[in-house]
Write a protein that binds this DNA or RNA. Structure first.
Lengths: 244, 244, 244, 244
DNA sequence: TATGAATGAGGCTTCATTCAT
DNA sequence: GATGAATGAAGCCTCATTCAT
């Protein structure tokens, strides 16, 4: 009887939904079929921009949880509380929705990052600390970490997304970091201009943190604040010869 | 009736005969992607282990290029020069192939990494240099960089893969790195024990390098050797004013 | 980049566009088996319940003609005049369609049978006669005979179907027949209570009739009315020399 | 985690066999992969006729348990202890094996039935009793009941099988039964010549017994001997008016 | 004669997209 | 605009059959 496909004597009938067995531990999408729709007919009245945002929110969960290919527009529509066809009133197709999602979610972060790094003559250690803090509260502590993973995962397959990121994140932030690093090197906060030449180095631990969090959180969780602090100590602490 | 196979007068259809459309003289499936076509028509002769490896090679390209969901077994089979069904003689299903691929490609690297980090009392800078070198020649310089990206991208959705990696890579390498870092801190090659407490920090730049390579290689290629060197300088170089 | 969907220079293949080969002016799928094509192109308009029934009708033909395994959903969909995917809007999978088919067709018959046998104090001969008549007009004379054969053929492999039948047919009809047989025995219409103890005996000839019809109809057709009459005579007729 | 497809960290590798989840209660084929093969190389030496018989035996289980379409030649070959290709040395294809199976299994029964019914001037009650007995010991009590069900199930789709049966079973046995019934009617053992005109009537209860056994054995088992006895009583017992 | 790895057509099912309402 | 039933291309996987050994 093991493996029996039967479902008792009243098996089928108008089928509605079916969750495919995902190979992984999805963040539990919940079973709400067309949830979030306020009382009868209410969904219809929302402001168009609000609907668009609701769709993007749902898309974040959907794409981040399953990846681009495996995400189901059915799920996204249901989670957004709209009909499937409605998605196409706002986005040309699945790919356009995906790209819009990524664009929409990146800007706010970049603004904050830019604001921090743009202030002149702040000690490097402090800049790094604030960066870490923003990273943890705005990304690792929220669903946006899913998005970052998503970008890492799907970026190489979507040139448009890669380019968008280069222009909107990399090209905006790295120069600022570089300037901070240059000043720090001049002031002796850093042993040399290595960080000024490769400001990407500050992103290494951040990436590692999201990736570790995604893969190993359950096996061996990472103490991210301590990890970040260790990184700062490693590159900025008074070096070997100095007073212990 | 004995012996005759008459089908009666009613068009019953008990059996669908399988018959190849062509007279069996087309050994090449025609859609062979572009790769690895062995000696013409001789597909049946290869050593079984060779076929398995051919499939894994094709799978690397397929999965790395498109991700798990978007990779097509059709393509992989064609690229491996085998029929679709043959895949299933070696792997239970798509997921098993995927996991086997990852396992098969990880071991050799880990061996090399372990060999390097296991040697006692080598200066940290030198260990890092060798690590960088291995990383560049064995991973970034080969298709295995695709695999690393693949693991990063799909790992979170495949607990089995995450766990496998933790056990076979993380749990084997990190302790070795930690020991090296401890010695380096004791010898004054490092300013403090930050790296000993978080040996993961050495992986940050490596991850950044693969990700950058995957996303921005065409827009703004990264000089990886210089990048790695900068990282080493940043954490180990004689600092600003101190005497060594 | 805003707005443009350029794909970069590398032949990445993130999305496969779906595009119909023909300009969407071919409403008829072409392989429509031979049946039930509704008003040209108007498939989308039918009442939902009508579609469901059309599918069930097509399923009857498909399953009855080939058995569960050999029936092709392609054929059933074509015969119902719907796309393959539409089947799954109404039934979870092939098995659910199969079970729904059987359930949907059984109820009306059972109602009629129950109505007949439930009337008290009707002479057995008359009950049997009406049973025979119903059987011939409602089952043997219609496609439902295919269904009965189907149940006989596939029932043993589908516990759910067997159980459904036991509950809905056997458990409902046999007690009624038993009561009729008991009265008949008391009134002397039967030689003993054998039929009361095994009311299944009335089903024997019915089963034989469907099976004979299915296998030997073309070789040696059975005169079912006469056959049924003979059965009635055999068990109820005034015997050889006795006085009534 | 429910529904997780993963199989721990050591998922795949050279796949060998796979049991598909059968919808029904298969008679537990066992898991022997290529069982029954005596010590190394021994299987190769069996007499050809013995191999053929082994294949037919395995085919009985396979076809009877799953039906023609769902039976797997893989299973049959494994159960017979031969390689898949060997099947084709003995039988042209799946259908030929199926038909050979049915033919091979029918003859012995028919011989016994014919022997019984051919004896002249035996009282009908006794003939029926022996028939019942043979039926129970040779068919219902053995795997051959599977075969009878198989014939009922698949016969209508295989004209060759139907015709074979008509010629070898029906056409041989019915005349004998008819003669017995005629004599019984003449001798007053039967109320009339109904059974002589439709000797098929004796088969009704037999068919019902196999079908009931197949479908309802677990829900409500049938006491077949008592059932058969009841049938005999019903048609041959001293009728109503006679001494109670 | 026997083997069993290899084949590839074809089945069931999914899901992005369309379109009549 | 919004809906969601309908579509049908395409994916994964199975398994009867072949054929080199």
């Amino acid at each position: 009887m093991v493996g029996d496909r039967h479902q008792g004597a009243n098996a089928s009938r108008p089928v509605r939904k079916r969750r495919r067995a995902l190979p992984a531990s999805t963040p539990a999408p919940g079973k709400r079929a067309k949830a979030a729709a306020p009382a009868a007919g209410g969904a219809r009245k929302r402001h168009p921009a609000a609907r668009r945002q609701a769709i993007l929110d749902a898309a974040l969960t959907g794409f981040a949880g399953h990846g681009f290919e495996a995400a189901r527009l059915d799920d996204i529509a249901a989670r957004a509380g709209v009909a499937k066809g409605t998605l196409y009133l706002h986005f040309k197709d699945k790919q356009a929705l995906f790209e819009a999602l990524i664009r929409s979610a990146v800007d706010p972060i970049v603004e904050r990052l830019a604001a921090v790094t743009a202030v002149p003559d702040v000690p490097l250690a402090q800049v790094l600390e604030v960066l870490s803090s923003i990273f943890q509260t705005e990304i690792l502590g929220t669903d946006r970490k899913l998005l970052l993973r998503l970008i890492i995962a799907e970026g190489p397959r979507f040139p448009a997304i890669a380019e968008f990121h280069y222009r909107n994140v990399v090209a905006r932030i790295l120069p600022l970091v570089r300037r901070v690093a240059e000043r720090a090197a001049q002031r002796g906060e850093l042993p040399n201009d290595a960080l000024a030449r490769f400001p990407q180095l500050v992103a290494g631990p951040l990436l590692l943190a999201v990736i570790w969090d995604g893969m190993f959180a359950k096996i061996d969780p990472l103490d991210v604040p301590a990890f970040m602090r260790a990184y700062r100590e490693l590159i900025t602490a008074s070096p070997k010869g100095s007073a212990s």
